[in-house]
Amino acid sequence: MESIKKIVLLGQFGVGKTSLLRRFITNEFIQDYKTTLGVQIKKKHITLPSGNTMSMIIWDLEGFSSVTKTRPSYLLGSNAFIHVFDITRPVTYYSLDEEINFFKKNYPKVLLRTVGNKSDEKNPKNVLEYLKNKDIDIHGVVSAKTGEGVTELFMDLAKNLETL
Rank of each mutant, 00 (worst) to 15 (best):
G147V: 03
Y74H: 13
H139N: 15
I136T: 13
T88N: 07
K132H: 09
K17C: 07
L157D: 04
K109H: 08
R89M: 10
S50A: 12
T53M: 07
T70I: 15
I46R: 03
G11P: 07
L10A: 06
L48R: 00
S66H: 15
T146Y: 07
V110Q: 08
F64L: 13
L20S: 02
T151F: 09
N117W: 01
D156Y: 06
F64C: 13
T36A: 12
L9R: 01
N123P: 09
I46E: 05
D60Q: 05
D137N: 12
Q31R: 07
T47Y: 01
E148M: 09
I25K: 03
V142Q: 02
K17R: 03
G51C: 08
H83I: 09
T68Q: 15
F29Y: 07
M56G: 03
M56A: 06
V141E: 04
V141T: 13
T92E: 05
P90M: 07
F24W: 04
G147P: 00
K104A: 12
T35A: 11
E129L: 14
L164R: 05
L157M: 13
V15G: 02
V67L: 10
L75D: 07
G149Y: 02
T53Q: 13
Y93M: 10
Y93S: 09
L111N: 07
T35D: 04
E62I: 08
T36Y: 13
I41R: 00
K17W: 05
R89S: 11
E99S: 09
T68Y: 06
I46M: 06
I87F: 08
K6T: 03
K6A: 02
R23Q: 15
V127R: 03
L157I: 13
E129H: 12
E129Q: 14
L37I: 15
N52P: 00
N52R: 07
T26F: 12
